[in-house]
C-alpha cells in the first residue's frame, strides 16, 4: 500500500509516496540519497543510523517514514553550516581523533548534539551515559568522550 507522506528533511519539504513498511533509514539513503546516515546493525542496537526527529536523537532503522508525516528530520548532512565548515561537534571529533574507521561517527555526532542541547554542562560520566545507544568497535570510546567534552565548551561559547 502506497502511503502519501510529507515531512521536512534538513530544512526542505519532501513529499513522497512510500510503502507502509519503509524505514526512515532506507528512505533517507535510497530515496533521498542522503548516504551520510549509515545502517550498522539494522536491529536498533548500534545507533550508527541515528538522526534527529523534532530535534531528538532516534534510530532511523527503527522508525517508519509513514510515522513521521509532518515531522522535521535532520541528518548528518543537515548540521554543517552553509559555508561548508564543520559543526563544532564534527570539528571536535576531528581535533580529538574521535574516530578510526568512521562508520559509527555520523550517529555518534547526532546523538552527542542532542545530548549537549539538553544537557550543556555534562560530566564525562554523563557523556558516556548519553552515548549508551551508540556503539563503536574501534576507538574504545576515550577520544569520543574527549571530543564531546571539547564540543560542549565550543557550543557553550556559541550560545548567546
Amino acid at each position: 500500500m502506497a502511503v502519501p507522506i510529507e515531512l521536512t528533511v534538513n530544512g526542505k519539504t519532501v513529499a513522497a509516496e512510500v510503502e507502509a513498511d519503509t524505514l526512515l533509514s532506507s528512505f533517507l539513503r535510497e530515496h533521498l540519497r542522503l548516504t551520510g546516515t549509515h545502517i550498522g546493525c539494522d536491529t536498533s542496537s548500534c545507533g550508527a543510523c541515528t538522526v534527529h526527529v523534532g530535534g531528538r536523537a532516534v534510530k532511523s532503522c527503527n522508525v517508519l517514514v509513514a510515522q513521521l508525516h509532518g515531522s522535521e528530520v535532520t541528518t548528518i548532512e543537515g548540521i554543517t553550516p552553509r559555508d561548508g565548515s564543520l559543526h563544532p561537534m564534527q570539528a571536535a571529533f576531528k581535533a580529538c581523533h574521535g574516530l578510526q574507521c568512521g562508520f559509527c561517527t555520523a550517529g555518534m555526532v547526532m546523538s552527542a548534539i542532542d545530548l549537549l542541547r539538553h544537557h550543556p554542562h555534562t560530566t564525562d560520566e554523563e557523556i558516556r551515559a548519553g552515548l549508551e545507544g551508540n556503539l563503536c568497535r574501534c576507538t574504545g570510546y576515550q577520544n569520543i568522550v574527549k571530543a564531546v567534552a571539547m564540543a560542549a565548551k565550543a557550543m557553550g561559547r556559541q550560545r548567546p
Partner: peptide, 9 residues
C-alpha cells in the same frame, strides 16, 4: 529504559 534514542520514541 533502553538507551536515549529508544526513550525518545
Amino acid at each position: 529504559i533502553g538507551d536515549p534514542q529508544v526513550r525518545n520514541r
